[in-house]
Amino acid sequence: MININGNFSDNNQVLTAENRGYSYGDALFETIKVSNSKILFLEDHYFRLMSSMRIMRMEIPMSFTMEFIEAEILKTIEKNNLLSASARVKVQVHRNSGGLYFPTNKEVTFIISAKALDTDFYLLNDDAYQVDLFKDFYVAPGLLSTLKTNNRAINVIGSIYAKENDLDNCLLLNTNKSVVEALNGNLFLVKGNTIKTPPLADGCLKGVMRQQIINVLELLPDYTLIEESISPFELQKADELFVTNVIQGIQPITKYRKKVFVNEVSKMLLQKINVKVRLG
Rank of each mutant, 00 (worst) to 15 (best):
M50Q: 13
F47S: 08
L189Y: 03
V180F: 05
S35Q: 10
N125G: 00
S37I: 12
V131A: 06
T244G: 01
D222F: 09
V190A: 04
D168S: 06
A238C: 04
D239A: 03
G6V: 01
Y122E: 01
T149A: 11
L117I: 08
I154W: 12
I4Y: 04
S231C: 07
L82S: 04
V139L: 15
L269W: 02
E228Y: 11
N274M: 09
A116E: 15
D202Y: 03
E107G: 12
V243G: 03
E30N: 14
L269S: 02
N5A: 07
V246W: 00
L172S: 04
T119M: 09
G203V: 08
S63L: 14
F68P: 04
L183W: 09
T16G: 10
G142V: 09
P61R: 14
A17N: 01
Y138D: 01
G158W: 01
L123C: 01
K148Y: 06
A182N: 04
N174D: 15
L187V: 00
I154L: 15
N81A: 06
I4Q: 03
T104S: 15
T194E: 10
T224Y: 00
E228C: 07
L124V: 02
G25W: 02
L269P: 03
R210Q: 04
L40M: 11
Y122K: 05
M268F: 15
A27M: 12
S229R: 13
L183H: 08
